[in-house]
């Protein structure tokens, strides 16, 4: 490994951070685009309901609707609760 590579690897590589963030948001937005128009509002409503009981940030709730075959659509709810007990 050359000296330059050493300096490179110790410095935080912002391009790879950018790539990771983009991959996540683009995948998220593509999924949303392909889903029904009511999905974002459904997601907000679900978040509201949960927040009546537990204080969780918006990015800890994921709602997706997946088409499996011709007959079946699966609504998937993924909610990550905070660690600390209330």
């Amino acid at each position: 490994m050359s000296l330059l590579d050493y300096f490179r690897s110790t410095k935080k590589n912002t391009a790879s951070t950018a790539k990771e963030r983009l991959q996540i948001i683009v995948a998220h937005e593509r999924k949303r685009r392909s889903g029904p128009d009511y999905l974002p509002q459904l997601e907000r409503d679900i978040l509201e309901v949960i927040r009546k009981y537990v204080d969780i940030p918006a990015d800890q709730v994921a709602v997706s609707l997946e088409q499996r075959g011709d007959e079946l659509s699966v609504l998937e709810l993924n909610i990550t609760f905070p660690d600390e007990k209330r």
């Binding site: 490179r8 590589n13 912002t14 391009a15 790879s16 950018a18 983009l22 991959q23 683009v26």
Partner: peptide
């Protein structure tokens, strides 16, 4: 800037889009 890790590479953008 790509080599320095400051800018997304061609491959990165191709992969994402």
């Amino acid at each position: 800037r790509v080599i320095k890790g400051e800018m997304l590479s061609v491959e990165d953008v191709k992969e994402i889009l």
